[in-house]
Nucleic acid binder design. Structure first.
Lengths: 208, 208
DNA sequence: AGAAGAATAAAACAAACGTTCAATTCATTC
DNA sequence: GAATGAATTGAACGTTTGTTTTATTCTTCT
């Protein structure tokens, strides 16, 4: 009844994070008990508190890491000095691939914000706003230089985000469509949505 | 300690449903306690069990009612013998207005399916599949008669559903945009998304 | 006015919850 | 090989949970 053979702090913490994301994604934050999580890791519940002072701290750590990583990924992937259509394509591509690769933590990020304290919720919303601002910026430039057609920048940004994040709700990587195929289709839909028909999918309106 | 003056079964049940939807939407099904719900209704927790045998029965009742009502609303609103663009427009319009008017129960329907038992989950998924099939049918007809352009019917259906359901995540009826404006914009985006430019938003590709 | 049934309160149940504490073993360093 | 600190256990804490039971009051019908 004490330290177990071969135990290692770093490995245990990583195992906790991984199991927590999986359990929260499947059953929800409130439905996941610390004992259940401990059992999944193969450890007693008390051991969890060596790494995360409270259950909510654990949640916050996971959510924060998810958003920080997403922002960093976009920062690395975004084209510089490119025209709006290229930027938008890069944004959609990065967004879908990132979220598909992290289905579970994306689910948690979308569902469990309400379990955070007020300050931590604000912090997460700020990160989210910062990320969404990138998309609005692209859309605004495209609307100004005439390469995009849209009624409202903010509204279009929300519509696109909802659409491309929604991939993870139904997409399973082992089914009929590959990530590449899905990404390509969503990219085409997005470009049509903002009135920037890609060369290969141009459609000339019949009565024009 | 017993029946209170002016108490009425029907009114109490309606009050329970209403308070439950509101609490579940704001805090989540797991986070809502029966005592908290009872307090919101102005009743003791034990009284709830006169109307719903278990907490999960209460959830199921709400979810089921939501989906049945949605399907009934579409059945009443859908045009008969109309071309795909008209049908699609009607679908988007009905969907957005229905969900905006029922923000709370939509939230619950989207978030709390996982708290249902296996059989009840299956039942809800069947209802959802039946509803989504309507959209796929419209898209398929449009793809076949050439009025729509799309890569994949199923994928496009999911993208549209996610996009137009996502309205309730950010939309607040008391802000800068009215329901009519939002619906109109989303309708325009949807038509462009499937390559069926509405008359007033036709855009002729520059290089055509 | 009295009987019957509908609607609720109050109290209790065992189980599960997040969390804390002290004790104990493993790994590492000197 | 003894000492030190990191890692973990096992038991316990007080709350809160969903639910049940029993008793009581209100309403309605005759």
């Amino acid at each position: 009844m004490a330290r177990t053979a071969g135990s290692d702090g770093e490995r245990t913490e990583a195992a906790i994070r991984e199991a927590a994301v999986s359990l929260m994604a499947r059953h929800g934050y409130e439905a996941m008990s610390m004992r259940q999580l401990a059992a999944e890791v193969g450890v007693q519940a008390a051991a969890l508190y060596r790494y995360f002072p409270t259950k909510q701290d654990l949640l916050f750590t996971l959510l924060n890491e998810h958003m920080e990583t997403l922002i960093a990924a976009w920062d690395a992937a975004r084209p510089r000095n490119a025209d709006p259509a290229v930027c938008l394509a890069a944004f959609v591509d990065n967004h879908i691939r990132f979220h598909v690769a992290r289905r579970h933590s994306t689910h948690v990020s979308n569902m469990e914000l309400r379990s955070l304290s007020h300050e931590r919720l604000s912090h997460m919303l700020r990160l989210r706003a910062r990320y969404e601002k990138e998309l609005r910026q692209i859309l605004r430039e495209g609307a100004e230089d005439g390469s995009f057609v849209m009624e409202d920048v903010g509204l279009t940004a929300m519509a696109i985000i909802q659409m491309i994040t929604g991939v993870i709700v139904w997409f399973r990587p082992d089914e009929r469509l590959s990530v590449d195929e899905v990404t390509k289709s969503y990219l085409a839909m997005t470009l049509r949505l903002v009135g920037a028909a890609a060369r290969e999918t141009v459609n000339v309106p019949e009565h024009a």
